[in-house]
């Protein structure tokens, strides 16, 4: 057999190393179980406060107010899902910032495996473990506070849509992390993303409660694919065409944004690595 250097790594190789990375990320997150527990406690506390807020709001139907527009069953489940996803994204941007600015990246570039695939896969692995832990906390919270769980169909959909939403979150933070190629700190980009999650992603309240133009803008943003679309599934009271349409909209938005963000990240990554190779950092 002739030994020619592989020109492009095979897709199967990439998938294999991504899987290994995800497994490593999941293992690390599990090993830090006290942190995981602390995160679940924080989640429950946040949910307690936010639920109390929305419960109070929905009991007051002031003339001219928006309270009438709130779903009858309240926003507990909606807020529960947005925070469930938002709190489960590992801080991959800080990892990238450290590696890019600390010089660890250069050593990685010498290895055959892609640094970026490895890091994103690790973050995704950690994200899935966090989703599981926080998800259990959410169900316990609902039971303890005497609230109904979402119907089984919705729970089933969340198991699919939740991790996808998490992937979009990881990709958004990866974008923030890649800004370290051009700026010393990723914090400014990170703050912008956080604000967008509130404004366009429905982190504070369903975007349908916002002015129409803002809601429309939000619906077509990756921020909604990350938080609003998975959360709004819980506002459907029963299985049926409504839920099916919602689920399809969520999946379509998530898949489209995963591909778009992935492509964007690949382009920015190339440009960033070129900067490193030119010695501009």
């Amino acid at each position: 057999m002739k030994s020619t250097p592989p020109s492009e790594p095979h897709l199967a190789d990439i998938a294999r190393s991504a899987l290994a990375g995800a497994r490593a990320g999941a293992g690390q997150t599990l090993a830090g179980w006290p942190v995981l527990l602390g995160r679940a406690v924080f989640y429950v506390l946040l949910l307690t406060v936010l639920t109390a807020l929305w419960d109070k709001v929905s009991t007051e139907h002031l003339p001219g107010g928006l309270a009438g527009a709130l779903p009858r069953q309240g926003l507990t489940l909606y807020v529960g899902v947005t925070e469930w996803v938002a709190l489960s994204i590992p801080a991959i941007h800080l990892r990238l910032e450290d590696d890019i600015r600390g010089g660890a990246l250069e050593a990685w570039l010498l290895r055959p495996k892609s640094y970026l695939v490895q890091r994103v896969a690790e973050a995704c692995g950690g994200m899935v473990v966090r989703l599981a832990a926080t998800g259990v906390a959410a169900l316990l919270f609902l039971a303890a506070s005497g609230r109904a769980w979402p119907p089984l169909e919705v729970l089933g959909l969340l198991v699919v849509v939740g991790p996808l939403a998490g992937v979009i979150g990881v990709l958004l933070l990866t974008l923030a992390g890649l800004s370290a190629f051009w700026a010393r700190r990723t914090l400014p980009v990170m703050l912008v993303i956080q604000k967008m999650l509130f404004l366009l992603g429905g982190l504070f309240a369903p975007i349908t409660l916002y002015p129409t133009w803002l809601a429309r803008l939000g619906a077509f943003s990756p921020f909604a694919a990350h938080l609003y679309y998975p959360a709004v599934l819980t506002l459907q009271t029963a299985a049926g065409p409504g839920l099916r349409d919602m689920a399809l909209a969520a999946l379509a938005s998530q898949i489209a944004w995963t591909l778009l963000l992935g492509g964007l990240i690949a382009v920015i990554w190339r440009a960033g690595v070129a900067r490193v190779l030119r010695g501009e950092i």
Binding site: V57, T59, E60, F204, A205, Y210
Partner: peptide
């Protein structure tokens, strides 16, 4: 501000 523009009052 947006919140209270919509809901006017919380308890």
């Amino acid at each position: 501000v947006l919140f209270f523009a919509g809901f006017h009052s919380v308890g």
